[in-house]
Design a protein around this nucleic acid. Structure first.
Lengths: 228, 228
DNA sequence: CTTGTCGAATTGTTGAACAATACTTATGTT
DNA sequence: AACATAAGTATTGTTCAACAATTCGACAAG
């Protein structure tokens, strides 16, 4: 078979992937991530369906998608609400991060040779943003750092799990009224963590990550005391 | 407050959780798990909708649910198909298991005091089933063992991830034409693993688990060579 | 044997309708 | 006035029917 044709196999999934429901889900996911829809807010089928110009049935399919990603909470006969994370949820998210990111760091010596390049890029991205006082973007770069970190595991499923986990965490990040205070300290720590891994000190990097996540969780929980 | 009343709190979520779409998803999930729907098979909206007596719209909501759980594959304008796992998928599933179950074993010393009771029960369950030649049930008990193992992490999200992961794996288990040969050896190994953990030898247990998962993966991949 | 065209079958999406449930407001009782 | 009850309204849950869009196989033409 022609080799050029075989190349196309990789692009196959980019063809069909666009049903209305999924595109609606993408839009809503973005809006939730950027905080336009606040946690606890109810999403009316009629209002949003009208605003986006889609039928209620299609919209409900999109809601199911996002409900499964834990960004929306579906209460029977009451509607869907933007998820409100409890303090236990935050604790659990960091528990999962310790497991998944911890495994990535411990296995970093076995990772693909050029696998650190992507991480290094996110560090640079964060530094650029910090230089220019774009603290929101620093937060985004920070998220990219951890996503790239998990990629060391070489597991598509763990990548996907991490993606959803970080999307959930973003629901909480919005409570930080001072993004600089929250994100700035981690720019340097990201770089340190990368350096430890690149020099093969995986054990040490593992401990640094533990401390890293402990600190981040504490900062977050302190600022986050939901009324309940 | 009355204590008996407080007990009911745990059952609360079982009350509202019964939309038709979710119940349909539960049914289909079971059918897929037991192999009634073979991997690769297409699920016709019309046929299944008629068989279950639900409308196409409701059925489509259920399909979205299961698609997100990776049990169904949604191909645009083509319909939904029971997922066909590739060899890479199997490898990835075991990659995730090493991470999640490995973390559970390593942290077993910190686990709640009575947390091993549930695991011990699954071991007994497997022994009973093996005694009576119910090898299908041995497989089920085996799954329960690993689910209980992950519960040592104390993380609802990891529990849920494991649940979905094992559901995916069941798609593959059906290729084992001889369930006894596949499941029997692991009954004893489950018990050994438990014993290592209960006696506090977490490090040793971690290595045992690695070997355990390596062997299981090899057995599975050997029997599983999908046409592709 | 490849390519173009047609047509049947299935999915994608919509809009309307009605039932079931939750929320709100009004009503009546103590 | 406080509280329980009842009626009314709004919203979700589900179905149905219709049509557009797409896939796929069959068949004809080159």
């Amino acid at each position: 078979m022609d080799n050029a044709v075989a190349e196309l196999t990789h692009d196959r999934d980019r063809l069909g992937r666009s049903s209305t429901a999924e595109r609606v889900a993408d839009i809503l996911r973005d809006r939730i991530a950027e905080g336009l829809f606040a946690p606890g807010q109810r999403l009316s089928e009629e209002a949003i369906g009208a605003a986006l110009g889609v039928s209620r049935n299609t919209l409900r399919e999109a809601f199911r998608l996002l409900g499964h990603e834990r960004l929306l909470e579906h209460r029977l006969n009451r509607g869907v609400f933007v998820r409100v994370l409890s303090a236990e949820d935050v604790a659990d998210l960091y528990r999962v991060r310790r497991v998944i990111e911890g495994a990535a760091v411990r296995h970093s010596p076995d990772a693909a040779p050029g696998a650190f390049a992507a991480i290094r890029e996110t560090v640079a991205e964060a530094r650029r943003a910090a230089q220019e006082d774009r603290w929101q973007d620093v937060g985004t770069a920070n998220i990219h750092f951890h996503q790239a970190l998990v990629a060391l595991n070489g597991s598509p499923r763990l990548d996907e799990t991490m993606r959803q986990l970080l999307a959930e965490l973003r629901l909480v990040f919005h409570v930080m009224e001072n993004p600089r205070e929250f994100h700035e300290p981690f720019v340097a720590r990201n770089a340190e963590l990368l350096e430890l891994m690149e020099s093969g000190r995986a054990e040490e990097a593992g401990r640094a990550l533990e401390a890293y996540l402990d600190d981040a969780e504490k900062l977050l929980v302190r600022a986050y005391t939901p009324r309940s």
